[in-house]
Structures are given as structure tokens and as C-alpha cells.
Design a binder for these strands. Structure first.
Lengths: 222, 222
DNA sequence: TGACCGTTAATTGTATACAATTAGCTAGGA
DNA sequence: TCCTAGCTAATTGTATACAATTAACGGTCA
């Protein structure tokens, strides 16, 4: 049986494991859209009872990945290409706002972390390690979300970031775009260090737009 | 016992009732911040077992209203004045985007609904029924969210709208602001009817800013 | 006195039992 | 043939039983 606890030493609640597993499987397309998610079947597959599965499904509904019809069942809503597009447009606004607020709230530790991330990214870029670069790109944004000083903004952006992660990873598989992204990150960080809110907002906005443009040329958007 | 099913004829799942009840109680300040939410106690109060309570708590965690520490408990996070402020700033951007997209996607039915809402709002304004006006103000925005054609944008804005509802209701208790809001709604709707994206976005943005300004003068913000 | 360790009570985590609901099928009649 | 009523199987909703974890208390020993 495909037990969910691949690394049993880590003791997270089962519901979290089920939740993450289901979200990943939905986002990666392992489940088809409108497919019914039956509690017992999932539980059997993952080697757990219905209880954690149910809790995970309820959470996925809140995330918008699943539709639950009372007394009927849970159905995969997934995210469409339109959703991805919409998320990017929304991020165009909100990543700018995040950078702007980071100018006000980022402390020395945040700036150090961002510096380190960029340094490591350049190191990996030289060795053409795209896997690690994608990871660091993700970390850069996550760190920025944490540095903006707003619980609400962090919440949205983190969710959105996870949504598009599957798509985003492919974005960086070409070195030109990956390197350009690092340069853009550097410029954004510089603006934040100088507490230049207007510039930081503008650069972040353009950064997302550039990412969108890149995706569009590769047919991954719209 | 304070049974949750005040209107038992409606048959929603218990978890939804518990969820709504808890959210309202948290937002209205019935629970103090950092207060521990014990499953059995809540269940007893509402006359249900732990199961629906647990599911509701997990959902509230996703909403950001509750922090769950595994094996320890659920604690009220609530939303602070800073959160409310941040939400309004974010809405400044996103309500504009929503109106812009509504220009593209709103159909005749949407426009009719919006017309009706404004008509009713003016009717109630003449009679100084502030309760109903608040309800209609809420409906106007919700309808706009539905008309924007984007699942993701609708999702965020609906959540945010619920968050600030408790504050927002107080906003309209003064007739000047309430009437001004109706006029602003009319202008926004007009722009959408004319499919004037730029104007609709600008007006919506200003509408939220005006609401913020009003709240600020009354000490409800920052 | 103070620190450490084991016990215990309270609480959450998980599994399972039972109730309610839904949907699909079959049989019967017009 | 078509429609409907009712039965049945499958699935979710809710409650409860049991396991695991935590934290607090108390006692023992240095």
C-alpha cells in the first residue's frame, strides 16, 4: 500500500500530509478536473482513515481547488489556464505592493537573507543548476512576502505562489530567463535597501510582467 | 443548551453552521485574541460533536482567523486594525481590477441585477433605512465580484469583503457617506455599461479610497 | 532548596461505527 | 413503451471510541 508516511520519522499530522499530497496531485494534474474525490478511496490509497482525508478536503475547498457539494461529494476544480493568467495579473499589482511595503518593514535580517539567496542563485546559475535556481527564485519571493509586514498580503501571495509553482518551475528552465530573473531580483533588492518605495514597486511589477511575457511566448499562458 | 440549529428547517451541514458561527464570533470580538478554542467546549456550547467543530477550525485556520498548533490547540488570531487597513489598501488595487474585468465579462443579467440594487438602495436611502442600505451595498460589491469573470479574483475579494464586513457596516450608518456611496456605485455601473475599462477601474479605486478616508476620519482605521 | 523524573489529567489526533442522504436500478402499472 | 414508486447500494455527515501527545503536578534525591 502506498503509505503516505514516506519519511515516518517526521511527525506532522496526517491531515497535513494528506492535504499537501492532494494539492500537489491536483496541481500536477494527476487528478482530472471534475473528477470525484471519494473519501474512502483516497484514505485507502494513502493508508489513513476518512477523518484526515475529510479535513484535507475541506481545506482544499477553502483553497479553491475542490468543490464540495453537501451530501454528494468532492470534485476537483483545479486551476485552469485562465486562473493562472488571472493570478499573474493580480500578482502584477500585489507583488509591487509587497515590495513597496518591504521598503518600510524589511529589517537587516531580511535583507541579509535576500542577499544570500541572490548570491547562491548566481553561484548555481554559473553551474547551470536549474533545479536549485528555481528553488531559490521561490525563496526570494517567499522572503519578500515575509518582509512586507502584512499578514493579509503575505497570505494571498503565498497562496498564489503555490498555485503557479508548477508552471513557474518550467519558466526557469531556460538559462536566459533564469539569469534575467536574478538580475531583476538584484535590482528590486537594491531598491528596497535604498528604501525607494516607488522604484521597488515599479521593478517588481515589471518583474512579474516579464515572467508573464516569457510564459506567453512559450505557450504556457492563454 | 444553545443549539446551533436555530432554524432547523434549513439543512446545511453542521460544519458550515459551526464555521459561520465561529467566524462571526471571532470577527465580532466575542472571542479574545489568543484565546484557546477547545473542541469539546465549543461542541458542547453549540450542541454538536467534535467532528464538525474540528472541520470548522481547520477551515478557519486557512482563512487566517485561527492558529492551530498541532497536538496543542487552536488559538484565535482574529484580525487587527493593521489587517483591516491592509485589506483596504489591497482592495484599492483589486476592486479596480474587478471593475475593469467586469467591463469585459458582465452580461445583461449582471447589469440588471446591479441596476436593481441601486434602485432599491435609493429607495431605502429616502426612508433612511441604513440596515437595508448596508445589505445592498454589500450585494452590489458581491455582484460585481461575480461579474468579473475570474474565479481567483472573486475568491480573494469575497474573503476580504467578509473580513471587513463588521467594520463596513458601521461605515454606512451616516447618511452622507451612504448616499455618496450610492452615487459612486451608479457612476461605476455606468462606466461598466459603457465598457469603459479605464474609467471603471479608476472610479472603483476612488470608491474604496473614499470609504477608507471616511473610516479614518471616524477613527476606525489606523 | 532546587532540579529532575515519573505519573496523571486534559486535549488533540485518528479510526471506526452508525445515521442520513443520494442516486441508480428494478418492478409494476397505465 | 414510458413513467413512477420503492428498494438497494454507495457515499457523505455526525458521533463516539480509542490512541498519542502535552503539560502540570508531586515526589524523590542530591
Amino acid at each position: 500500500m502506498n503509505d503516505v508516511g514516506e519519511n515516518k520519522n517526521e511527525k506532522f499530522p496526517l491531515r497535513d500530509k494528506v492535504f499537501n499530497r492532494l494539492r500537489d496531485d491536483i496541481l500536477s494534474g494527476k487528478y482530472k478536473v471534475n473528477e470525484e474525490l471519494k473519501e474512502v478511496a483516497i484514505g485507502k490509497t494513502l493508508g489513513v482513515s476518512r477523518t484526515p482525508v475529510r479535513e484535507a478536503l475541506r481545506q482544499l475547498e477553502l483553497e479553491g481547488l475542490v468543490t464540495i457539494i453537501p451530501n454528494k461529494g468532492a470534485y476537483v476544480k483545479g486551476i485552469t489556464k485562465e486562473d493562472i493568467h488571472d493570478i499573474f495579473v493580480i500578482r502584477t499589482y500585489l507583488e509591487g505592493l509587497c515590495a513597496k511595503w518591504a521598503c518600510r518593514h524589511a529589517d537587516e535580517e531580511d535583507l541579509n537573507t535576500l542577499d544570500e539567496i541572490i548570491c547562491l542563485a548566481e553561484f548555481n546559475a554559473a553551474k547551470e543548476r536549474y533545479e536549485q535556481m528555481a528553488e531559490l527564485d521561490s525563496k526570494f519571493h517567499q522572503t519578500l512576502y515575509n518582509a512586507c509586514g502584512s499578514k493579509m498580503l503575505r497570505h494571498i501571495l503565498r497562496d498564489f505562489h503555490q498555485y503557479v509553482e508548477s508552471v513557474r518551475k518550467q519558466t526557469l528552465s531556460r538559462s536566459e530567463r533564469a539569469c534575467a530573473a536574478i538580475e531583476e531580483h538584484k535590482a528590486i533588492l537594491e531598491a528596497i535597501k535604498n528604501r525607494d518605495e516607488e522604484l521597488a514597486e515599479k521593478l517588481s511589477c515589471e518583474h512579474i510582467k516579464a515572467t508573464m511575457a516569457n510564459l506567453r511566448t512559450r505557450g504556457l499562458l492563454e
